[in-house]
Amino acid sequence: MLNLIRSLKSATLNKNIFKTTLLSRFIVNEPSKTLAKDVLIYKNDNTRYFRIMSFFCMSQYVFWNYMAVCFLRMNETKLKDDVKDTSWLYKINFGESKWRYPLGILSMVLGTSIAIAGFLYCARNVKLLVLRKDGKSVSFVTYGPFGRNIIFTTPLEKVSAKASRNSANSAIPLKVKGKMLHYSVDTRGLFVHPQIFDSTVGLRRQL
């Protein structure tokens, strides 16, 4: 019985030593050391929401482009002379060139803009952050169209957090050098290793 208790204490102690060693490489004074394997430091799996968002964007694109075709195919009709007590809206001839082409082009631009904005919104939300085993680079996994993953790896020196994990309200904006706009880390996600996140991806750097 005494030997069993000692073995349990030894296992717990070894587990704590492993965690402390892992964190010390990035918190204390050894950030350049390599890891035994890649480390997941953040996770926010919200695939269903972003898949629905993708379908919404695509439906808007199809709808507004269909409206554009309808506008461009409208025939010009003349209003009858005996119609007098009609609202000004009903007197507009949308089949005229001055109405047909602007409305068609506006519909195409609107549908395309909604689709692009929606897909960019999905692609800028971070699903996973993985610290590579070299300790000097991090892999981003974001949401692509219809729930697919977008994956890229960048050096840590090219990543700058615009807010700390404790001060951010709903999301932590991350700027990646060479990328347009910012990536968003939802604070409601799971920070698997919060200390490692703070000392690697969560640092504010001059880019």
Score class of each variant (00 low, 15 high):
179 K>W: 11
200 T>V: 06
6 R>S: 15
100 R>E: 01
188 R>D: 12
177 K>S: 11
69 V>L: 14
91 K>W: 05
148 R>K: 14
102 P>Q: 03
56 F>M: 08
52 I>K: 13
29 N>D: 14
138 V>E: 01
138 V>A: 01
134 D>V: 02
15 K>T: 11
173 P>M: 10
69 V>S: 05
99 W>D: 00
154 T>S: 07
146 F>V: 07
121 Y>L: 15
48 R>Q: 13
35 L>K: 00
196 I>A: 00
46 N>E: 15
43 K>A: 10
39 V>M: 09
165 R>A: 05
17 I>G: 03
201 V>R: 00
25 R>W: 03
204 R>E: 11
140 F>R: 03
33 K>T: 07
120 L>A: 14
100 R>T: 00
89 L>I: 07
193 H>V: 09
205 R>Q: 13
99 W>T: 01
27 I>H: 00
206 Q>C: 10
152 F>T: 08
112 T>C: 07
160 S>T: 14
112 T>E: 06
155 P>S: 12
104 G>P: 00
163 A>S: 15
81 D>A: 10
162 K>Y: 06
167 S>C: 07
64 W>C: 05
120 L>N: 11
58 M>V: 08
152 F>G: 09
10 S>E: 14
148 R>V: 10
68 A>M: 04
17 I>F: 02
16 N>A: 14
141 V>Q: 10
38 D>G: 06
81 D>N: 13
100 R>Y: 02
61 Y>W: 06
156 L>T: 04
178 G>W: 02
207 L>Y: 11
5 I>F: 09
22 L>R: 06
39 V>L: 15
185 V>S: 04
63 F>C: 07
88 W>Q: 11
107 S>D: 03
12 T>V: 14
64 W>L: 10
41 I>E: 01
179 K>E: 14
105 I>Y: 02
65 N>I: 10
168 A>C: 09
125 N>M: 09
167 S>K: 14
81 D>L: 12
195 Q>E: 14
165 R>I: 10
196 I>W: 00
69 V>P: 01
95 G>K: 01
